[in-house]
């Protein structure tokens, strides 16, 4: 499930993502991207190209930061993209990383974003503890 980082951190991130998915049933998949744009953990299914997904997520987060700079802002704190197939939701972490989730088209997006914002603190805590150890 997890991709990089210490074993303890990976397991903890997996647990946080599993808790988030259990809490928010509309979430189909979710992941944590580090401030260096590395895919730290994800709920990918078999057959999903992790490097490709990580690169696409990094491109998306970089694009949102570019838009923030162009608008005279420091950074983007939240991103919601509605597509025909579903929604892509991104919540920024303190270190510049991101908590990302996908949902189906009929998801209660406001509720999912609320749950993601609530989980953000726990993800940041795990990453901070992992950095110390």
């Amino acid at each position: 499930m997890a991709e990089r980082g210490g074993a303890g951190t990976r397991e903890e991130l997996d647990r946080v993502l599993a808790d988030l998915r259990a809490l928010s049933e509309d979430i189909e998949s979710c992941a944590v991207l580090s401030g260096e744009r590395d895919l730290l953990s994800s709920s990918h299914g078999p057959g999903v190209d992790r490097e490709r997904v990580g690169a696409m997520l990094a491109a998306l987060v970089n694009l949102s930061e570019k838009v923030a700079r162009e608008n005279g802002k420091d950074h983007t704190s939240q991103l919601r993209i509605d597509t025909e197939g579903g929604h892509l939701l991104v919540v920024r972490l303190d270190d510049g990383g991101a908590l990302v989730a996908t949902t189906g088209p009929d998801a209660r997006v406001g509720l999912v974003l609320y749950d993601m914002r609530n989980s953000r603190g726990e993800v940041e805590k795990v990453l901070a503890e992992g950095g110390e150890g």
Partner: peptide, 18 residues
Amino acid sequence: TEGQEFTDISRKIVEIGL
């Protein structure tokens, strides 16, 4: 143009999952 860059990438991610 700007919006299309976001939706093109997102469509693929939503399709394949994370």
